[in-house]
Every structure is written in C-alpha cells, then in structure tokens.
Design a protein around this nucleic acid. Structure first.
Lengths: 182, 182
DNA sequence: CTCATATGAGACATCATTGCCTCATGATTC
DNA sequence: GAATCATGAGGCAATGATGTCTCATATGAG
C-alpha cells in the first residue's frame, strides 16, 4: 500500500524556502533543523541537494500557477485578472523569489516553464493595454518588471508585519495602476 | 614604498559581484576564473571567503553612499534629490542587491550602516512628503520599498539591454512619482 | 640591466558538506 | 497486542571547497 505522509516532506520544503531565501549557502543540516526533522529524513525525501532545489522550483511553479489560475478564472477583464493575480501572488512571493534567485541552476524544462509564465504575464498585460489600462510610454516588459517588483515590495511589507496581505495588495495595485496606468 | 595595484583586487571584486548575483553558492575558483586571476591571487587579497564577502559589502556601501552624495549635493529640493539618487543608483543596483541578499551574514557595524542608509532614504522621503510630493495613502516605508523595487526593476532592464540607463531611470522615476505621488 | 613586487600554476593538508548506512524508537494500522 | 512504517540519532566514507605553501615567470621601477 502506498502511503503518503506529507508532514515531513512539506516541513522540509517550507523550511527550505525560508532558509534559502535569507541564506542561499545554508547547509542541508540547517534546513533539516529548521524543519524540525532529522537530516536522514530529509535525504529520504530528497536524494540530493540538487534534487531538493529541483523540487522547490517545481513546487514554487505549481503553487504560483495554481494561485494565478484560481484568482483569474472568474475575472471579467484582463485588468481585473491582473489585480486578482496580484492579491493571490503576494503571499507566495518567496516562491517567486526563489525561482528568480538562481535561474542558472534550473533544468531546461523548468526554464521553459518559467519563460512560459513570464510570457503569460506579458500576454495579460498586452490585453489589458488594449482595454486602455496602461500608458503608452511603458513597454510591456517594463510593466511586467514593475508588477513583479511591486509584488516583492508588498511581500516585504507583509513579512515585516507592517501591513496585512490585503492592505499590501491594495497598496501595490494602486501604486501599480497609478505608476504605469493611463 | 607602499604600492597600490588595483587591477587584480578590483577585478576580483567586480567578478564576485557579478558571480554571486546570479549564483550565490559559487566557489572562489569560479570567482577567480571570472576575474581572470589565479586562485592564489584571490587569496592574497582576501584571506577567506568571509573576508571577501565583508569587503564586498563594505565596497557596495561605500560606492552607493558616494554615488548618492555626489548626486544630491546640488539638489535644490528633496524631490530632486530623490530623482537624482535614482539615476545614480541604477548602475549600482547589483551592489544594492548584494547587500540585501544575505543580511544575516553581515557584521554588526555593517548592519548598522545599512540601517543608517535606509533611515536616510526614509528621511529624504519624509522631507519630500512635506514638499507635497507624495500621496498621504502611502506610508514612508512603502514608498522606500517601492523606490528600491523600481531601482531593481530598472537595473534589470539595463542589464538585459532593453533600455539605456538614462531611459530606465526616467521610466522608473515616472512610474515612481505617478505610483506613489500626489 | 637589476631588483623588487605581483602573479599564475599547481601541490598539499584540512575542513565542511554531502550522501549513505544502521539501529532503536515511536506512531499507525490491522 | 503484533506488525509495519516513518523517523531521529549517529556513524562513516567520499567529495569538494578552502586556505597555505612553493616556485617559476612577468612586470615595473630605479
């Protein structure tokens, strides 16, 4: 019988995101300690450091895609989809962060998925531009970078408990739409 | 006679910024290779990995402070000082980036200097707020984070050769002042 | 030219991390 | 209660990074 026990594995993944975010050179012992599991247990779930990294990247991608898909399925415009995406992504910004931190080490298919997500963001921005949302001064690339940058800034505010996730998202959206909007 | 030969040391520092920015776990061999110097030479200038990191942080801080001071010495308002700071910092964003990437590993006095720089940015924003520059909706902390985030975004555009430094700075300033301005 | 200095290449020992292993323990299922 | 499974602790060897060393060479000053 195949049994799935998530707690240990999930704890390691969460601890790894947390640890590597602030200390990229942390050892697996550090991660295991943060996760509250033995080092052996970590190795049972993840054969090697690279395997853990690969899993982290994949989990980050999946969680982000799921959040975005869930946030946009009921949107009635591309602008609204972007706004709801912003709200959905902010709590997961450390995932986004991890993905962008060592793109060099990513496998080919993950790099491809990463590029695909970026293309989808640019696509949504292009459509929102047609809806008249954005200033013609701002290139789509710039708008996408600003979007990501504001997500990161908003996440920082939430992490430091200066704002609630909802407050941060509202502020970020206002800043975004005033900043690059028409 | 004390002789100062900067080329090797400077090459290592520059290579280290470049390498660690995209690959935080890179080895000193990688850094030396990127710098075009032997590993022994790297160790002659920097006794240990930690010493190199410490030097990088210190250099980053000094370069940023010098750039900001130079950019703001002739400013006639706090708003203008912020705008000129933005222009000055963008080419050095990888330095800023390095400083924020592993704050945990910084020595106490560097942490203090880092906090001091942040406080100065917040101070300038407060004064610019009195000049009527900013929306009252945005907290000073948020404005400061947006400022840093836009610097990073602009630097990315320059790095990827999508925009010139001047174009990127102008776009970032427009986005900034529209985004959090009054 | 002569000397001093900086350098590159490489050898070397040391250390930390990694990956694998076993064994005893605790939890869960039947 | 018995059996099965995941786990924690710890030992162990292999690997890779690090830090130190020597020596030959190149560069630059006097």
């Amino acid at each position: 019988m195949i049994r799935v026990k998530l707690s240990s594995r999930a704890a390691v993944i969460e601890a790894a995101f947390l640890t590597f975010a602030t200390h990229p050179t942390a050892t697996l012992t550090d991660v295991a300690k943060t996760a509250g599991v033995g080092r052996a247990t970590l190795h049972r779930h993840f054969a090697s450091r690279d395997a853990l990294m690969e899993t982290l990247a994949r989990v980050a991608m999946e969680e982000l895609n799921a959040a975005v898909e869930d946030a946009t399925k009921n949107a009635t415009s591309y602008g609204q989809a972007l706004e709801q995406t912003l709200h959905a992504i902010i709590p997961l910004a450390n995932r986004q962060w991890f993905l962008s931190s060592d793109t060099a080490a990513m496998s080919d298919d993950l790099t491809e998925l990463y590029a695909k997500d970026r293309a989808e963001l640019c696509d949504a921005i292009e459509h929102a531009r047609i809806e008249g949302l954005f200033s013609s001064d701002a290139t789509t690339d710039w708008i996408a970078d600003v979007f990501d940058a504001l997500v990161y800034a908003a996440w920082g505010q939430v992490r430091d408990e200066k704002l609630t996730p909802k407050q941060a998202a509202n502020l970020a959206w206002t800043t975004f739409i005033n900043g690059v909007g028409k």
